[in-house]
């Protein structure tokens, strides 16, 4: 951050975007700064603090939960308590310790694009949409903007809000595998599906820390979609997941361990979700 010379505190999202478009790559949007001040990238000359830009709201209604781009993890945690049986609340809580949740934003956790970001697989399986503001307003999925480790396709666009749909009958589960409660995930997994007439429908499986970005396990999803979720089939799905992920070895865990755990936790979470309660949209 030695190059940082300017601090801006725009009072609207439109003003924040105007500043970013003016400064381009020399400026960053600043939420809680909890990632930026750890990574301290060179070449950043201006910070655009979006915490005062009027987008720190959360809205909860029967059909969706909307989390403003400036809303803190602590506020998101409360807002999503009733979503998918509490699965998203669990993921947000496990994203960071309380001291960090008091400062960091949910949008920042997404935009930081850590492959291990815990909120991201959970948001992905629930079909969360991002409303971006740039030259125009657009709505995209999280997958659309993640391009690599700490890389996104956001450019000058601001995450104005995150919209999480509340769908009837969704069964979901999340697990973060880490050495300690404050550690970064070795693997994190989220699953969501419905059970209709004895067969699995709308199966979505997402994993973090096992590829350059958080990923959907689409082959595994396809293996389960429309099928009765028997124990034998879940064991098959476990194998498909282990083949499908693309982890690396680093000092946290080996490639082989991550591969194995990816499969194991997808199988366990699918069982847990199938045996657990289904969500009600306005629960």
């Amino acid at each position: 951050m030695r190059d940082l010379r300017e601090y801006h505190r725009p009072s609207s999202a439109a003003e924040a975007v105007r500043l970013k478009r003016e400064y381009g790559a020399k400026a960053v949007y600043l939420g809680g700064s909890t990632d930026l001040l750890v990574h301290r990238p060179a070449g950043v000359e201006a910070a655009i603090d979006i915490r005062h830009a009027g987008i720190d709201y959360v809205r909860v209604d029967d059909s969706e939960v909307v989390i403003g781009g400036g809303a803190l993890l602590r506020d998101a945690e409360k807002a999503v308590a009733g979503v998918a049986g509490g699965m998203l609340r669990q993921a947000v809580r496990e994203t960071a310790p309380w001291l960090i949740r008091n400062a960091a934003t949910l949008a920042g956790n997404i935009a930081n694009a850590s492959p291990a970001a815990d909120s991201v697989p959970a948001l992905m399986v629930l079909g969360a949409r991002l409303v971006l503001w740039g030259e125009a307003e657009e709505e995209v999925s999280i997958e659309d903007i993640l391009s690599g480790p700490h890389r996104t396709l956001l450019g000058d666009r601001l995450i104005r809000e995150i919209r999480v749909p509340r769908t009837d009958g969704v069964r979901a589960a999340f697990h973060k595998l880490a050495r300690s409660a404050s550690d970064i995930a070795l693997v994190n997994v989220a699953v969501a599906l419905k059970l209709e007439g004895g067969v699995a429908r709308d199966v979505v499986i997402a994993l973090g820390a096992v590829a350059p970005t958080a990923i959907r396990a689409r082959q595994a999803e396809a293996a389960l979609e429309g099928m009765p979720p028997t124990e034998e089939l879940l064991v098959e799905v476990e194998k498909v997941v282990a083949d499908e992920v693309r982890p690396i070895s680093d000092w946290r865990a080996s490639e082989g361990y991550r591969r194995r755990m990816s499969g194991v936790f997808v199988r366990r979470l699918l069982s847990q979700a199938l045996n657990g309660e289904q969500s009600r949209a306005a629960a």
Partner: peptide, 28 residues
Amino acid sequence: ESGECGACAVIVDGLALDSCILLAVQAA
């Protein structure tokens, strides 16, 4: 100095946070 240990916790506008990963200007 990386938001891991909490030894620098202070309360800013009613919320405790790690002051090592907050710019002073953010607290203006």
